[in-house]
Design a protein around this nucleic acid. Structure first.
Lengths: 193, 193
DNA sequence: TATATTCTGGACGGAACGGTTCGGAATATC
DNA sequence: GATATTCCGAACCGTTCCGTCCAGAATATA
């Protein structure tokens, strides 16, 4: 009957996200998007609706991929503090790679648009909540197993970790030195003990 | 001889900064700027050069004002930890005010443009360095007076504080709850002891 | 082969944008 | 009053932007 879809929607979404991630929402043009996605403007509008709809979809796509990624790391059979330190170090390391110095997508979206764009803001908040949840279960386990102090409740500590990670990534956008960022990671992780 | 300037350059700069601060660079049009500054487009170009030049000038203006502000707080005759806690709490409190939920200007600039705009990036980095310097002298004093632990060197701790403050402000852009942010402040400040 | 669907490229409209220029009004000093 | 400077409004240019639309090529099934 009909000609089938030729491009992978999920992959096109990932490509669009990468462009938004690197350039921000406003600074990204339709040409940038369709070029990276490898499809025509017409197909983009047919499939995703509009630039703004596409943008919202990329945030949801990011949440989908990152959630599985973090909660995967959470189930690693190692002390919770070690897992957390590894997650932070990996984030710092990624900031040092040549074309990856773009921080956390949710972070960027929160700063650039979340105040004026409530639809995006809602999704960003949900994404940060899910990050918090991932850290929360890690902290709980660490407190159970004894390598994380119980002087603060795990919910606050999870929020502390999300906040700290975001702060480190922002610093990484301005400074370049990996060593300086790792110093901050050390102090942050030590604050858990 | 000549007609004198009718508008205050420094004040116009402050108004422009406020617009950039709320909307970001790309999302701010010349009309937004001249409207807020209360001058015509011609005067703007005569005085500041271009939109981009004006933007760079606002970053420098921000550094000028904030530097004096923080180093003023640094000389308050109170335990360093108390001063730091007060600075953080004030930042959180400002995020809760209706039209002030826009974080730190340097933070916003770092996220939105510093990677692609090296001229802006340089200024942002310099501004963050000066914030670090202000915290550095505070930490040094705290370590001398005994209310801040000496297990970490003061330079790293200063960086930790700048990073944490930025992280908290990013969280504040997504979430709204002051209580949650203050929880994070508590853990952060406790990490100093 | 006929049919249905997908995809492309380009054309188009309408709007907003950054930036430049200029005439003339306003305001100071001499 | 003559002069010099500032300021404004408006016009203007070329570009970019988002979004819509369509003709036609491509590709599947029946």
């Amino acid at each position: 009957m009909a000609r089938p879809k030729e491009f992978d929607v999920e992959q096109a979404l990932a490509s669009a996200m990468n462009v938004f991630w690197s350039n921000g929402y406003k600074a990204t043009s339709l040409g940038d998007l369709t070029g990276a996605m490898g499809i025509s403007k017409s197909s983009m509008y047919e499939t995703f609706g509009s630039k703004h709809d596409l943008f919202l979809s990329t945030i949801e796509h990011y949440i989908r991929t990152v959630t599985t990624q973090i909660s995967g790391a959470a189930h690693i059979d190692a002390p919770a503090v070690k897992v957390i330190r590894a997650l932070f170090h990996r984030a710092v390391q990624r900031m040092a790679e040549p074309n990856s110095r773009r921080g956390c997508y949710l972070n960027n979206c929160a700063v650039e648009v979340s105040v004026r764009d409530s639809e995006a803001g809602q999704r960003v908040e949900k994404g940060l909540d899910m990050m918090e949840e991932a850290f929360f279960s890690l902290v709980q386990r660490g407190q159970r197993e004894g390598d994380i102090s119980t002087r603060h409740d795990p919910r606050s500590m999870a929020r502390f970790l999300v906040s700290s990670l975001n702060g480190i990534l922002v610093m990484g956008k301005a400074h370049a030195s990996t060593d300086k960022l790792n110093d901050v990671v050390d102090i942050t992780v030590n604050a858990l003990a």
